[in-house]
């Protein structure tokens, strides 16, 4: 196979690397605070090494996008940030991850997962009302205590931050699984925000959604970056280009390139990155 030279591919505007660019909908960060630090992280499932000695920072005020072909370890890396990897029995993790300078291995998993919350690929509201979906997060473990009245302000503000409140304020008692796909996913984001996390992880949050809902969620993600450090895994290069400040390109478990989005898409240092963002493989 011949590696295609960087070229225009008929779509007109192409960046020097061959990435047929989308329009960036994110401005440069106002500030950035380092919240997490991944240090020499390796994760393996039985004999297979899914993540190989990856180090990178995660900052509030910025959106970090992780890109790469299927099976390159980006989701595994994401799941190790809140220790969800521990639910897989065969998974072995080595290296360090710091959250505000504390090793996450020393933090109780249930506490850690309230500080580093996650949104999944498939919208997965719980089979209860819109209100209870958020209230469940605010309540103590399995408890039903705490009256609706006392939780109301927090529930409303979480829905509001996810840009959903206006749409559902009259239907808070309706079953959440009756919302549209895009609304369900925003409810899941609201749920993740209700715990007041420091870091928000998104695992291909738009892959099951239509373009319009995708746009709404992308705008939302951009707006959230000042309140919370955002890490998004995506298959969609255009999406990464549109909303990310920093991009981590992973390939076969290696972190091939980490840098500012404009650099990774515009003039990548590594050949593999250039091939991937120009569509030579993926």
């Amino acid at each position: 196979m011949v590696v295609p030279a960087p070229s225009h591919n008929g779509n007109g505007a192409a960046t020097p690397s061959g990435f047929s660019g989308a329009r960036r909908s994110i401005g440069s960060p106002q500030f950035s605070i380092r919240r997490m630090e991944v240090d020499q992280l390796s994760v393996s499932y039985a004999a297979r090494e899914a993540v190989k000695s990856v180090s990178l920072p995660i900052r509030q005020g910025e959106v970090l996008a992780m890109i790469g072909p299927s099976g390159c370890g980006k989701t595994t890396l994401l799941r190790s940030l809140n220790r969800l990897t521990e639910l897989t029995r065969t998974a072995r993790v080595s290296g360090r991850i710091l959250l505000d300078d504390v090793d996450i291995g020393l933090i109780e998993p249930t506490l850690l997962r309230r500080r580093v919350t996650m949104v999944f690929q498939q919208p997965n509201p719980f089979p209860m009302s819109v209100f209870d979906n958020i209230a469940y997060v605010l309540r103590e473990q399995g408890s039903r205590r705490q009256r609706r009245k006392t939780l109301e302000p927090q529930v409303h503000s979480a829905l509001d931050r996810a840009g959903l409140f206006e749409e559902v304020k009259d239907n808070l008692d309706h079953p959440a699984l009756r919302l549209s796909g895009g609304q369900q996913q925003r409810l899941c984001i609201a749920r993740a925000l209700a715990a007041e996390p420091e870091v928000l992880l998104l695992d291909e949050p738009c892959s099951a959604l239509d373009p319009q809902s995708t746009q709404v969620i992308e705008d939302l993600i951009v707006n959230l970056r000042d309140d919370v450090a955002v890490v998004i895994v995506t298959h969609n290069l255009q999406q990464a280009y549109r909303i990310a400040d920093h991009v981590a390109f992973m390939y076969l478990g290696d972190l091939v390139e980490y840098g500012a989005a404009t650099t990774v898409f515009g003039s990548p240092r590594e050949k593999r990155t250039q091939e991937y963002v120009s569509g030579a493989f993926g």
């Binding site: 809140n82 969800l84 639910l87 998993p109 249930t110 506490l111 850690l112 997962r113 309230r114 919350t117 996650m118 999944f120 690929q121 498939q122 997965n124 719980f126 469940y136 997060v137 473990q141 399995g142 899941c188 749920r191 993740a192 209700a194 715990a195």
Partner: peptide, 19 residues
Amino acid sequence: HVREASYAVGKTKIATARR
């Protein structure tokens, strides 16, 4: 992923099973 969504907001297995 529904179980994981509950674990990912800090819920224990038993709370997830019950609620």
